[in-house]
Structure formats: C-alpha cells, structure tokens
Design a protein around this nucleic acid. Structure first.
Lengths: 113, 113
DNA sequence: GTAAAGTATGCAAATAGGCGAATACTTACA
DNA sequence: TGTAAGTATTCGCCTATTTGCATACTTTAC
C-alpha cells in the first residue's frame, strides 16, 4: 500500500481510538449500547453535567461513533456500530486477564514470604 | 457492581484505549504483531527516530500491551496479547465501512447534480 | 411573540501528550 | 578499564483535551 495512504488511514484509525480514550466516554458508549438516550436523560444516567455529556457526544459524533436524531426538543443519541462495543469488550477482557495475573502474582508473593 | 470499582475499571480501560490513540503506535503494534523487534530495528522499520519509538514503547509497556525481553544489548519487544490486534481490526473495519459510505454518498451526489 | 425545555458552545484554567535533539544509562567485549 | 552499540530519559517547546460555568441557540407550546 502507498505509504501516505497508510499513514492517513492510521491517523483516522487513531482518531477513532482516541474516541475511546476517556472513562466517561466509555461509560457513555456502554450506556448507549443498551438504549438510545437524549442528552439530559443520559446526563442523569451517567451522573455528569449536561455540558460535559454534550461535549463527549460531540467527540463521538465527529468520529461517527454515535448517531444523533432530533425528536422535538430532544436529540436522541445511539451507538452507530456495535463493533465499537465488541472492540471495547476485547480490550476489557484483556484488562481482566491482566488484573487476574497481577492478583495471582501478589498471592504467590505472599505465600513465598 | 460498586460504582467506584466500575469507575476505576473504566479508567484502566480508557488508559488501554489511549495506548491505541496515536497513529505511530498503531503502526508499531501492527509491526510487532508480525515479528518481535528490538528498538533500533523497529525504528528503522517504521521510519521514526529511536527516541520516539522508545517513548512509544514505554507507553505501551506501561499499559502491558507489549512485552520487553532483553537479549544482550538489545531489548526485544513483542505484542503481549493478540486481542489488541483483534480490537484494532474491528475498529479499522468500521472505519472502512464508514469511508465506503462516504464514497457512495459522494458518487450519488455527483450523479444527482 | 414569549417562555420553557433541551442542547450546544465560548471561555479560562488545568492537565496531558507529542516531538527531535542531546544526553545518560546499560551491556558486551577487547 | 575503556569503547561501542543499544536503549531510555531529560529538555524545551508546542498542541490537544477535559472540565464546569455561564451563555447562546433551537424547538415547542401557550
């Protein structure tokens, strides 16, 4: 592949990943995977100020990771692609393995001492 | 689940995602998925300064996403878990779909005009 | 038209992250 | 011990991101 094209795709790829790189956004994405929410209900659900949630949703919208649909005064947001959750789940499972290993290591150190 | 624990896990989860949130690190991860490399060879391969590569590897090491193994003067790095690549591939496939949709939209606009 | 509900944005401050060049550290070997 | 190769880190600089508050914008309903 052309190197410049590869670089451009990697840039977009990294941009999507940066959409995942915030704990509040992860919570928002998992929440939207269950249900569509409008901004204020979502803010209540995740216990964050409305402006913070709105700004996170903009980050996700800019990356096409969520879809916005206006209904009256409200704007309903939903997950645009379930592969986002699949990817998050893979990484979370990896994290769980890693934490288990750390715990096992800690136990073995206790036993040895 | 306890809300504080959930928040802590989300924080670690986001930290892993932030490891993916840079185009050079994505290139490095895909490169290491093919082969283990020492730092300087990897720097040649990805065409970045040694210090830049070393710093990126530290980011990945801190998140347990790569494994370092010293052999003589060299330190060989390898991917610590293939699920990283699986997650990246899911997101890249999503990106590809999105780019295709954009292209199709652009074509339809041309036809319509 | 005006008020109210819902949403987005400007602002300012703080924090984090990226880079290359230079330098320090580590290991091997003469 | 001293030199070279390989790696990590410090430095200076710059850009990006997150946050809450206050405010502006948009839509509905009276």
């Amino acid at each position: 592949m052309d190197n410049n094209l590869r670089a451009e795709i990697d840039r977009l790829h990294a941009q999507i990943c940066s959409g995942l790189a915030d704990p509040n956004r992860i919570l928002i994405l998992y929440t939207l995977a269950e249900n569509a929410y409008n901004v204020s209900d979502l803010a209540l659900k995740v216990e964050l100020p409305q402006s913070t949630v709105s700004r996170h949703l903009k980050v996700l919208r800019d990356r096409d990771m969520v879809t916005a649909q206006r209904d009256g005064q409200s704007v309903f947001y939903s997950l645009s692609d379930d592969r986002i959750i699949q990817a998050l789940n893979l990484l979370r499972a990896m994290l769980a393995s890693s934490l288990e290993n750390q715990a096992a290591l800690a136990r073995s150190v206790q036993i040895a001492s």
